[in-house]
């Protein structure tokens, strides 16, 4: 120390205090963020990786690790191509996925258009605006069990409120009931998001359009919808994901029937766990089914994101626009 000049000593002191501050920053980060990271890793990352690894094994529920047998892509092959030794893998995957996709196709358009209409109406400043918004959102806070129980009775064919949809015996009736129940239950969510988007639209755009002689309906298509494109995109992505995850409605109302025609993907996965007739080795197949399922959902989400990016130009272009608008302000 005696050899160091005054400046050097100051420098050394600075360095050590900097190091100390880095150390304290990291210990704070660990203390504050560590617990969440622990739970996130234990309850999301670990199961995700474990599910992926297990999908390459032949195993059953309750097996210990030593009972598991590595089979490579066998589970995936069984699922994608029919294997006479394990026909259920292919059958349950394709029918379950098919029904889920049908459910997505039947619900998502309504779950965008109906909330959009309600949000547009709310934007016209009706009397009791807050009341209507609260009312349409209300079913959202109910549990799926409550909602399905109510609608099972509402659609009771002998003495219900609506008696013309025999959902226990006819396929189309069953699907109609599932779709109506889902709409009634979840329309409010997107309505609130879209309504919040509408409130952010610059009012002067409408004024300018009115001066230019643009009618009310034209304004919706040329001003409103493009302006809330972002919200519509978010709604579409989240609704598609939510509809892919359908379980409660078909489990509780139709119980997958009639004749397994509304048996959804998730119900099929659970059957591998709970239904002994699914055969041995079902756990690995169920794992592989889930991996394929999530790949499909992630792919769809990414495609939607790419489409939206094309619509609003490249990221670079958007940055330039953003910069310009900032300068303008």
């Amino acid at each position: 120390m005696r050899d160091l000049s005054f400046e050097q000593r100051i420098e050394a002191q600075k360095r050590s205090s900097k190091m100390r501050s880095v150390a304290s920053r990291y210990s704070t980060a660990l203390l504050f963020f560590g617990p969440y990271l622990f739970f996130f890793s234990l309850f999301f990352l670990y199961p995700l990786i474990r599910g992926f690894v297990d999908s390459f094994f032949f195993w059953n529920f309750g097996d210990s690790i030593s009972d598991m047998r590595f089979v490579g892509w066998q589970n995936y092959q069984n699922i994608l191509f029919s294997n006479p030794d394990f026909p259920l893998a292919h059958e349950w995957f394709t029918t379950g996925l098919g029904h889920t996709v049908l459910f997505v196709i039947l619900t998502v358009p309504f779950l965008i258009v109906i909330p959009l209409i309600i949000a547009l109406l709310l934007n016209k400043k009706p009397w009791g605006e807050g009341f209507f918004r609260a009312l349409f959102f209300l079913p959202n806070v109910l549990s799926v069990a409550t909602v399905c129980l109510i609608f099972k009775y509402v659609f009771n064919t002998s003495m219900g409120l609506v008696r013309t949809l025999p959902y226990q015996s006819e396929e189309t009736a069953a699907w109609t009931v599932l779709v109506i129940t889902t709409l009634w239950w979840t329309v409010g969510n997107n309505m609130v998001i879209l309504n919040a988007g509408l409130k952010q639209v610059d009012k002067s755009l409408y004024e300018a359009a009115t001066i230019d002689g643009c009618g009310q309906f034209k304004q919706v298509f040329y001003i409103t919808l493009p302006q809330i494109g972002n919200q519509i995109l978010i709604c579409t992505i989240t609704t598609v994901i939510a509809s892919f995850n359908v379980y409660g409605q078909s489990a509780l109302i139709t119980n997958g029937g009639p004749f397994e025609s509304t048996m959804m993907f998730i119900q099929r996965v659970l059957q591998f766990k709970n239904n002994p007739s699914a055969g041995t080795g079902g756990a690995g197949v169920a794992n592989a089914m889930c991996i394929l399922f999530s790949l499909i959902i992630i792919a769809i989400s990414i495609i939607q994101l790419i489409i939206s990016r094309d619509r609003s130009g490249s990221p670079r272009k958007r940055r330039i626009i953003k910069k310009k608008s900032k300068e303008a302000i």
Partner: peptide, 17 residues
């Protein structure tokens, strides 16, 4: 990004856990 992953994927390992 974990929000994009459907819950059923982690279901089986979670059940075992």
């Amino acid at each position: 990004a974990s929000m994009m992953v459907p819950g059923i994927v982690t279901f089986i390992p979670m059940y075992n856990l």
